[in-house]
């Protein structure tokens, strides 16, 4: 069950400060890295929300993100809609997709749930891969960032856009935390712990699971719109299942079911990727080794393990 402990708050603030400082004092390349981290972290929080707290390990979070990005691109570039309205449509599309996946899979769990979400994600991928009007496998460009000049904010400035993205990451974290500590979120944890007993208590578990997936889709959709606005370009690669797998890796690396762990996982993965790939193309080997280490040492992940040691230490102090 979720609790926003002081340790989690401190870790969250430290992670956000690190990203802000890294972007502020770094080069253009550093800001690109920070935005890559932020987008991955939002997706990872979104996945931790349903996998870590609801036991729903999804392999279609990339698809949720990609659908939001594509609908944003389609509405704003192809149909000439306003950017805010297009973003709204993009988010709605991601929520509807995630809600449908959640509804259909509400009665299955474990490996079958994973396979079903994989199938849904790959279906979405195939649709955009084949859809020539939206560029098909070439992808599609021409997306624009929000125009906030009325508030004196120019999102086309790299650093300002980085802070904007950082703000969205914080927003997603707060939204997740508030939902997870609500009656709804507690029920979700209850379903994760013992779905049958929740039903015996009169809880419609299918409804809670569907809603959780829809909320997760909303957060993944925010990552998608951010990604589209960041590079001004989208491609079906956003939806492919290996991206969803990478997000799951980030969640496990950082600490599943901790909500702040995924941010740590995203920072580590992206930094490792960029520092190791300077020497070798086989950086995945090193990520794999770290992951194996993380799983073998209790499966709590980097933050999860730290939190475990901290709690143990605190109990020792009281005893």
């Amino acid at each position: 069950m979720f609790y926003q402990s002081p340790l989690r708050t401190i870790t969250l603030i430290a992670a956000l400060c690190f990203l802000a400082i890294y972007a502020s004092f770094g080069s253009y390349f550093a800001r690109e890295i920070v935005i890559e981290i932020i987008i991955l972290a939002i997706l990872a929080i979104s996945l931790d929300f349903c996998a870590g707290f609801g036991g729903m390990v999804s392999l279609c979070h990339g698809a949720m993100m990609g659908i939001a990005a594509y609908f944003y691109g389609m509405m704003s570039v192809k149909l000439g809609w306003g950017l805010t309205a297009s973003a709204g449509i993009g988010l709605a599309a991601a929520v509807i997709f995630a809600g449908c996946v959640g509804w259909v899979t509400a009665r299955i769990s474990g490996i079958f749930f994973i396979m079903a979400t994989l199938a849904f994600g790959q279906m979405a991928y195939t649709i955009f891969f084949r859809w020539r009007w939206l560029g098909g496998d070439d992808g599609m460009g021409g997306m624009r960032r929000f125009d906030l000049s009325a508030w004196g904010v120019n999102l086309n400035d790299g650093l300002i856009f980085t802070f904007w993205a950082l703000g969205i990451l914080l927003l997603v974290y707060i939204l997740s935390a508030l939902l997870l500590r609500s009656g709804f979120g507690r029920s979700l944890s209850g379903i994760h712990a013992n779905e049958g007993r929740m039903q015996a208590l009169g809880i419609n578990t299918a409804t809670i699971r569907t809603q959780a997936m829809a909320f997760s889709g909303l957060m993944a959709g925010l990552a998608g719109i951010l990604a589209a606005q960041h590079t001004f370009y989208i491609s079906p690669e956003l939806l492919v299942w290996t991206l969803s797998g990478e997000v799951l890796l980030v969640v496990i690396l950082g600490g599943i079911g901790t909500l702040v762990g995924p941010i740590i996982g995203a920072i580590l993965l992206v930094l490792m990727k960029h520092s190791i790939s300077a020497y070798t193309d086989y950086w995945h080997i090193f990520v794999g080794l770290v992951l194996i280490f993380a799983v073998l040492s209790g499966g709590r992940g980097i933050f999860g393990q730290g939190e475990y040691w901290w709690q143990k230490y605190m109990r020792g102090q009281h005893a």
């Binding site: 508030l178 939902l179 500590r181 609500s182 009656g183 709804f184 507690r186 029920s187 809880i203 409804t207 809670i208």
Partner: peptide
Amino acid sequence: SGKLFRDP
């Protein structure tokens, strides 16, 4: 159980 944003 279904309440959003309110901690039981």
